[in-house]
């Protein structure tokens, strides 16, 4: 767990005027604050947004849901691979980026426990600062565990990089609660219901058999691998693992939506990240809106755990929500959500 959480400003030369707290380091060679050190800066970070086609419309996938340029999966991979090293997202605004998208860049990174190397402009800084202060006040969330229905087993590097990354990206888009584990780390599956083998390495079945026989479900490529083992099973999917979209769809079917921990309605431009405190008494479901503005539709959310109390917390206010018991969990009707909302939960 990182002791120091960097909040970097991307700057060269003399610092911009005004109060820069809580920023605490510089990225880019400026003077006047300590330089950013000791952080990992994953390659390939994107400016968070809904992907737009040449005609200016949202690009959509096969199901009609818009494609998102999102970094949540990248942050989660980085934190998994080097848990002791804080993560900084290096993404610069494109020309003409709206002020709200700067706030989106800040909240997206901090939702997943990282920080954005802030691009400072006088117009956008107040909003970005508010977002950083909000997450600084909720620093404990960084260490809460994800509420997961599935563990993605992969090296996430080398031969597994593409497969592992795409599994993370696409499963996140389907709002599947997930956690990450390295091949062979069977202990990481403790308490997990299902795991998917998103690795090019052969499955060491013998190593995983104890977990499977005690009730675990291991999802692998190749129909011929399907079998029951003790209280658990191996589900072999027919989809080619090289077609990761098909593989992820097949994985979600193998888990079945019955194991979903979170569902969203009227939230096509949202990704979610659902976490719980170690004692299970509190939780938070983050909603990040990549459209970067106030949602036009009334969003609803369902959580599989029957939380007693829920509060919608945005960057500037709190609204109590009325949990409605349904399908073993609760459903919450949300007011229009802007760039970001946290649903704070109490058991």
């Amino acid at each position: 767990m990182p002791q120091f959480h960097p909040l970097p400003l991307r700057w060269t030369g003399t610092l911009p005027a005004g109060d820069l707290a809580p920023l605490n380091c510089l990225y880019g060679g400026g003077a006047g604050m300590p330089a950013l050190t000791g952080a990992q800066i994953p390659k390939g970070a994107q400016w968070p947004s809904v992907r737009v086609n040449k005609r200016g419309g949202a690009e959509a996938g096969p199901t009609g849901a818009p494609w998102l340029n999102a970094n949540g999966w990248l942050i989660r991979r980085a934190r998994h691979l080097e848990p002791g090293k804080p993560v900084v997202i290096d993404a610069q605004p494109p020309a003409g980026a709206r002020p709200g998208s700067y706030v989106l860049a800040a909240v997206e990174a901090m939702t997943y426990g990282a920080a954005w190397a802030v691009t400072h402009t006088p117009e956008t800084w107040p909003g970005v600062r508010g977002a950083i202060q909000f997450f600084t006040a909720h620093a404990e969330w960084r260490e809460w565990a994800p509420v997961a229905a599935l563990t993605v087993v992969s090296d996430f590097t080398g031969d597994d990089e593409f497969l592992g990354d795409e599994f993370l990206n696409l499963l996140t888009r389907r709002q599947v609660g997930l956690r990450l584990a390295a091949p062979g780390n069977v202990a990481a599956l403790q308490g997990a219901g299902a795991a998917v083998w998103a690795s090019k390495k052969p499955v060491p079945y013998a190593q995983y058999m104890g977990w499977i026989r005690s009730g675990g479900t291991l999802i692998v490529q190749g129909e011929a691998n399907s079998r029951t083992e003790g209280k658990g099973r191996v589900i072999g999917r027919a989809e080619e693992w090289d077609d990761v979209y098909a593989a992820v769809t097949g994985t979600h079917l193998a888990m079945t939506r019955r194991t979903d921990v979170l569902r969203l309605w009227n939230a096509g431009s949202f990704n979610s990240f659902y976490q719980a405190a170690p004692d299970g008494r509190r939780g938070v479901a983050h909603l990040v809106n990549y459209a970067g503005n106030r949602s036009s539709d009334d969003t609803s959310i369902w959580l599989s755990k029957p939380w007693k109390k829920a509060t919608l917390t945005t960057l500037d206010k709190q609204t109590p929500l009325k949990p409605m018991a349904t399908n073993g969990g609760i459903e919450l009707s949300l007011p229009p959500v802007g760039v970001y909302a946290a649903i704070e939960l109490e058991a």
């Binding site: 199901t63 079917l253 399908n327 459903e331």
Partner: peptide, 18 residues
């Protein structure tokens, strides 16, 4: 169901049905 070969049961669950 819209744009999918998913089984109907899965489609219903996505809508919040049991």
């Amino acid at each position: 169901p819209w744009s999918t070969t998913d089984p109907l049961e899965e489609y219903m669950m996505e809508a919040g049905w049991d």
